[in-house]
Amino acid sequence: MTSLPKLFTTLLLAGGSLLPLGLPAHALDEQQKKEFGAFIREYLIANPEVMLEVQEALEKKQEALRAAQTTSGIVANKQAIFASADDITLGNPKGDVTVVEFFDYNCGYCKRALADMEEILSEDKNVRFILKEFPILGPDSMAAHRVANAVRILAPEKYPQFHRALLGGQTRATEQTALQVAAMLGVQEADIRKTMEDKPNDPQVRATYELANALGATGTPFYVVGEEAVFGAVGHAELSQKIANIRACGKATC
């Protein structure tokens, strides 16, 4: 049984709590502070599960704060999220539910999540799926996304196939591998290089970074479904459930 130092026994008897509300820290003298610290240490050693409860409460609070930031960010940036001219839309452009994915061509989780997108688009013909290029994994990613942006400008009808081939590839996405994929689709390297020079994607990338920051996104893949953010490659089942929820109750989480 854990014993209470004299100070805490007195406080319990006097006020019913260890530190009455409103008692400032300077109200304790040095000996009392020492006893207080010793008691806390003794209690936590005897009851370490309390730390797990504290950690869980902290995580829930942080998650709630992040969710609030994300929701307000989505509401404030709907045009940039759902109607940017710099993005490519797959699936049904007039679909009743929109899923937005922020991705990087060198993100391993994005590569695995490609199958989730394909399955959703295959089984649900009323989903609008927006691809938002978000190169965050170094110079190779930046270079590959520059090529992708040029392909989008030059041959938007070939971009979906380009995207699937480059993201689904086993090698690292670089400028060269992206150019090779484009060439296989009939988009000439000379045209791509001229487009990259005339219409660089730097402003687009900056805008995406600012948008991601406003939404609290720190990695890829990152989804927006309705007014809810979905962090990470959560899989086909969870994304499909959120799509169904939008139709059922108007929110990604009913």
Rank of each mutant, 00 (worst) to 15 (best):
A148H: 09
D116A: 00
P139R: 15
S141F: 10
A113W: 03
A144E: 08
A143R: 09
D140N: 12
L154M: 13
L154W: 08
N149V: 06
E118Y: 08
V151K: 10
S122A: 15
E157K: 12
P160T: 01
Y105N: 09
Y105V: 13
K125T: 14
L131D: 06
P135N: 13
R128W: 02
C110I: 07
D124K: 04
A113S: 06
P156Q: 08
I136K: 06
E123A: 11
L137E: 10
E119T: 15
P160R: 02
P135R: 10
P156D: 04
E133A: 15
Y105G: 06
L121S: 00
D124P: 00
K111T: 07
P156M: 00
N126W: 08
Y109I: 05
K125Y: 14
L114T: 07
F134D: 07
V147A: 06
K111R: 15
E133S: 15
A155P: 03
G138T: 10
N126G: 08
M117G: 06
A155S: 12
A143T: 08
A115K: 12
L137I: 13
K158S: 08
A113Q: 01
L131C: 00
R128Q: 05
Y159P: 02
G108C: 02
H145A: 15
H145L: 10
C107Q: 06
R128P: 07
P156S: 10
E118V: 00
N106I: 03
S122H: 15
K125E: 14
L114K: 14
G108W: 03
R128C: 10
E133Y: 14
C110H: 00
I120K: 05
E157A: 14
A115Y: 11
A150H: 04
V151R: 09
R128L: 09
A155T: 11
G138V: 08
N106W: 03
F129Y: 14
F129T: 12
K158E: 04
G138H: 13
C110G: 04
P160C: 03
E119K: 11
A143H: 05
I120A: 05
C107E: 10
A143V: 08
P160Q: 03
N126V: 02
Y109A: 11
Y159M: 03
F129R: 02
R152I: 01
L131Q: 05
M142P: 04
E119Y: 07
Y105D: 10
I153Y: 01
D124V: 08
D116H: 07
A143C: 10
F134Y: 15
N126F: 00
A150M: 10
L121G: 04
A155H: 09
M142G: 14
A144S: 02
D116N: 05
F129G: 11
S122C: 07
A148W: 00
R112L: 01
A148V: 10
V127Y: 06
N106T: 08
P160K: 01
S122L: 14
Y105A: 12
H145N: 11
R152H: 04
I130D: 00
L137S: 12
